[in-house]
Design a protein around this nucleic acid. Sequence first.
DNA 1: TCTGGGGTCCTTCATCCT
DNA 2: TCTGAGGATGAAGGACCC
Length: 400
Amino acid sequence: MVQGKARAILHIDMDAFFVSVELLTRPELVGKQVIVGFPGERSVVLSASYECRALGVKSAMPMSVAMRMAPHAVIIKPTHSLYSAYSARIMEIFRDITPLVEQLSVDEAFLDVTGSIRRLGPPEAIGQMIRARLRNELGLPASVGLAASKFVAKVASTGAKPNGMLVIRPEQTLSYLHTLPVGALWGVGAKTAGVLREMGITTVAQLAQTPRDTLSRKLGATGIHLHNLAWGLDDRSVETEREEKSIGAEETFTTDLWDEAALRREILHLGHRVAARLREAGKVAGVVALKLRYSDFSTLSRSRTLPVPSNAAGDLVGAAEGLLEKLGTRPQAVRLVGIRAEKLGHAGGGMQLSIDPRDDNWRAAEATMDLIRSRFPAGALRPASLLDHGQNEKKPGQPS
DNA sequence: TCTGGGGTCCTTCATCCT
DNA sequence: TCTGAGGATGAAGGACCC
């Protein structure tokens, strides 16, 4: 909703972020077809250079399809630690401009620069300044959208790609939005687009002209939300604080798995990964969820509330194994297994009490493992039950 | 073409409690 | 003691995003 003095919201989105970071150390690949992702059969494209995108390659596309579309592309395995490091430097630059930064992911954020105008000049100039700093200080291209609301700013940055800036003034909002397909709206994916198509709606303009009741009947609250967006109504503010609501880990096997023991080993492995991340974040889990995906891609999840919130791997693994047992025999081979910690609380507020002294020993052992992990490379330490087992189930290049 | 891994949010259904 | 309504909560699944 644009009322009174219009806000100045920037949405900044790095261009082909993973690829751009990799090219910093491989300048010979600039201007070439480059894909970041695992070359394995079951992986997907994480990021593609614009030279690849011109051939139809997109993020999240199966790697096998991408390689067919761009057979000469150079494939680079991802270096997530590097992307995190650059992400931190990008966010530093943003916070140098304004404290009102809402980080959406490693490579994009909203900035409310309404209060920075007196100090730094008009928002257009601030946007260009940020792009220049990203380019000069980090060597990374970014696209910027400027509008009076988060949603329109995001749409604008998409329209600005690659390496550009698009300003949508309040009075231009509707004429711009109504030129777009419904898929441009945040929250319209393949399914919702399909429902809308069946209703004869393929553009934002058509969506805007559809009665709210009709949309509500078909799509529930989503329909009302989309109708608001189609009229440019979005008064959400830039949120600087965000608390994690869940922490999880999952693994897709190179070949689908029937072997019970191998499945349990993976659950043990994932449980330790999740528990370590919980401890690192100073959190405890109130609920543990187990996720299985079968050969036919059908997915099921089961969850269990822990008697006492915990961040000990033993507790997470125990709950996940209990859920697995409750499922009984599996109708198909398993393609993916995952564990997620939910209903997170702060660790330490109420230290877990246990009647079993062995629990304290385990917790002490896990705290020691955290310490060793922090000083030595990842993967140097793992539970004994994971040694010399199950290596063939892992995807190539995946840490274990 | 055949689908990763990390998340968030929403809807629906079941269960418990008053 | 039985029954039904309605709210709160938990569990499961789906859709979506990057």
